[in-house]
Amino acid sequence: MTRATFILFACCVLLWTCVGQINHYLTPVHMSVFVGGLLVAFSALRVGFREGWWCSILIGLFVDSSAAVYFGFHALIFAIVHVIIYNFRGRFPREETFFGVIVAIFTNLALFIVISAGLIHRSPTPLDTLPRLLVDLLASEILVFVAGPWFFSLQERSLELCGVSLRREQRGLL
């Protein structure tokens, strides 16, 4: 774990806290948002494997600490998604924010489906849960699309302010 890991982790904690507050205010309308894809996308696309991977693990454990699931559930799926994105990132224009947001949207979709598949058995009537999950997924994807550029910029600027350069990870410069 390096300084970059902790800076990215702090940014993710900030985002997760904001999302927690949004969910708190959305409870009267029975809606919630999930931004797991956004928590993983930047660290998987822009920074080195170790820094980003540890960040994904830490934020996964942070999410797990207050979630009604087995401790390590989110950390595991965040780590798997991180490894997959990292392995394929060289083939895409990963330095572009727009591409990062697209990756975040698809990652969020994948994570949402995996979590839903893992937890839907808890419901007494699983099929009746699907409309709610679809609405939540739609709201989550809209939030990821809207907040994605801001969050990418926040992480980039935070790293810059703390003296961590992303130039080493960019292609064609070194």
Binding site: G20, T27, S32, S66, A68, I115, L119, L133, D136
Partner: peptide, 13 residues
């Protein structure tokens, strides 16, 4: 402190 009612679980702190 916080309500967390999503499609998977409903908890509050």
């Amino acid at each position: 402190v916080r309500r967390d009612f999503n499609g998977w679980w409903q908890t509050m702190t």
